[in-house]
């Protein structure tokens, strides 16, 4: 299938490319023609006021939210959605979702499974790893996020910060090409959020590719390679985090930053 992608310069294939993503609810454009490319090992943070469409855009990347229009390419996979055409097939969705890991604001761990089982299940069912192999990997990842002692605990027996770290391990277990973080610390107390951010920082240092929707400005500034500012469904500014935060060029960015920085 040929998709009329704008600017079809045949540059080096980006690691992940979400282009022309639009999400309409009735006539309201929650996300309006947003394009984002990310290279291997890059961490991009998306900031902006509430209701700017940041999370919606992020959720369009792995089709938890079906975009009204747009194309998502990851590695060799490319899935396009157009207003007038079919929805992606199950196989296409599976291919994209296999390459993308997601961490939610509300953790969404499976409450009836132990921490270890939470991480092993999809490895077995989606990647076809043996139980032993999966558990071994899960255990390593729990260790990685500092929670190997919680392997047999149920999510309800873990603090919010611990749950979020388990959720990060669960997403990493499938060896995703790209990780999506949807306001991973918004549901946490600041000091608890810090332990989650510390883990994310380490992972970033180790070369994780990630897109992070966040209100944690210092994290966005210090950890991300690039910052994207979204307002009213559109990208208004994009570039070096330090540059944007010290000298925002767009009026809405200035407003937003003065509201959140020094809060």
């Amino acid at each position: 299938m040929n998709h009329p992608v704008n600017n079809t310069e045949e540059s080096a294939p980006m690691f992940l490319r979400a282009s022309g993503i639009t999400k309409k609810y009735k006539e309201h454009r929650a996300v309006d023609n947003v394009t984002l490319e990310i290279d291997q090992g890059e961490v991009v943070s998306i900031i902006g006021p509430s209701g700017a469409g940041k999370s919606t855009f992020l959720r369009c990347i792995n089709f938890l939210e079906m975009p009204t229009e747009g194309t998502v390419s990851i590695g060799k996979e490319s899935v396009a959605v157009r207003t007038d055409s079919r929805l992606p097939s199950r196989a296409e969705l599976a291919a994209i979702r296999r390459s993308v890991g997601m961490v939610f604001q509300s953790f969404n761990l499976f409450p009836h499974l132990t921490a270890l089982r939470n991480i092993s299940l999809a490895q077995e069912r989606v990647l076809g790893r043996s139980g032993e192999e999966a558990d071994e990997k899960s255990y390593q990842l729990l260790k990685r996020v500092g929670l190997d002692k919680k392997a047999t605990a149920y999510p309800g027996q873990c603090s919010g910060g611990q749950q979020q770290r388990i959720a990060i391990a669960r997403a990493l277990a499938l060896d995703p090409l790209v990780m999506l973080f949807d306001e991973p610390t918004s549901a946490l107390d600041p000091e608890v959020g810090a332990e989650v951010l510390a883990v994310m920082r380490e992972l970033a240092d180790e070369g994780m590719t990630a897109i992070v929707v966040t209100h944690e400005m210092s994290f966005a500034r210090d950890v991300s390679d690039r910052m994207v500012v979204m307002v009213d469904g559109s990208v208004v500014e994009e570039g070096d985090p330090h540059a944007i935060m010290s000298a925002p060029s767009h009026e809405r960015t200035r407003q937003f930053l003065s509201a959140v920085v020094g809060r």
Binding site: N62, L64, A94, R97, R98, V100, G101, M102, F104, N108, L109, F110, L121, A122, R125, V126, R170, A171, L174
Partner: peptide, 8 residues
């Protein structure tokens, strides 16, 4: 959503 995101 979590199951879907994991590809189950």
């Amino acid at each position: 959503e979590a199951s879907a995101a994991l590809g189950l």
